[in-house]
Design a protein around this nucleic acid. Structure first.
Length: 273
DNA sequence: TTCCAGGCGTATC
DNA sequence: GATACGCATGGA
């Protein structure tokens, strides 16, 4: 990690990283563009758990990022992990370049990185995501955070019923959230143990929650447990598979299918075909 | 008005 | 195991 401390800020030099592409590509739903630093190309504010961060990308096509009001400790212990800064995405993209369509997807948005998000937030977010669109997912999560004073833990949601969640306007998903809250708080679903399971075993365990099927489970594993061999198949990726990979994914994605998935998902959603 | 959204539960075969 | 259908809500 290449950074220098500048007063209360930290200036990071990081290749293969773009804030728009990483924070607004449908893997996280709580980052917002702010206009407080017009001297920089783009600034977002958001959270890891309850830890806030404001971060700027200094130039549109540059590799300089300013982490505002951040300590070196938090940079090393939180944000370096959250933004997956120890992983060489340049090397991954070189691997993917042997596949023509994946190569196009990487060229289109080469600054995507997998966010290592909070497991609980990810589980709740992707239960809400089913048969839903991204703007509305964000709206529901906004209402949840506003109501709870930040993204709630399962402990804080103890004994919450679907009826209590009416203010979310989450529709039929409210009863799924209720089941998830109960299973986590009763110990029927042990997220810390699931993190250490194989991807297949973890998927089976997560799917014991009502409203968690293969797709939601794979998103929770990929974004909330960094199981990067999981490959969530939503409506968009199913189109990609049918058109470009009818006989399965190319060999170059082996073991890191989830990273390929993010490049493909973002590309197909923006460009179609 | 109708269709669709980072799907899944249920019924039926 | 495969397939068909309903589902809350809101934007296009």
């Amino acid at each position: 990690m290449d950074y220098i401390v500048k007063g209360s800020d930290i200036l990071l030099n990081q290749a293969d990283f773009n804030l728009d592409e990483t924070l607004d590509c449908g893997q996280a739903f709580r980052w917002r563009i702010v206009d407080d630093y017009p001297e920089y190309f783009r600034t977002y504010t958001g959270f890891f758990g309850k830890k806030p961060l404001t971060v700027s990308q200094l130039e549109e096509n540059g590799s300089r990022f300013l982490f505002h009001n951040t300590t070196e400790d938090d940079m090393i212990n939180i944000w370096c992990d959250y933004f997956d800064l120890r992983t060489d995405y340049g090397e991954i993209k070189r691997r993917f370049s042997e596949d023509e369509f994946l190569s196009k997807a990487c060229d289109y948005a080469g600054g995507i990185r997998i966010l290592r998000q909070d497991t609980e937030e990810c589980l709740i977010s992707f239960i809400i995501s089913q048969n839903n669109n991204i703007p509305r997912i964000k709206g529901i999560l906004d209402r949840l955070c506003e109501h709870c004073g930040g993204f709630p833990t399962f402990g804080e949601l103890a004994d919450t019923t679907a009826g209590d969640l009416g203010y979310l306007r989450a529709g039929f998903r409210a009863k799924y959230l209720e089941d998830c809250i109960n299973k986590v708080n009763s110990g029927a679903l042990k997220l810390n143990e699931i993190k250490n399971m194989s991807t297949d075993d973890a998927r089976q365990a997560l799917m014991t929650v009502k409203g968690v099927g293969p797709k939601v489970a794979d998103c929770v594993m990929l974004f909330g447990m960094y199981k990067i061999d999981s490959y969530p198949k939503d409506v968009w990726i199913k189109r990609v598979n049918e058109k470009h990979y009818p006989n399965g994914l190319p060999q170059c994605t082996k073991g890191i299918e989830g990273i390929a998935q993010q490049y493909l998902f973002h590309y197909i959603r923006q460009n179609g075909e």
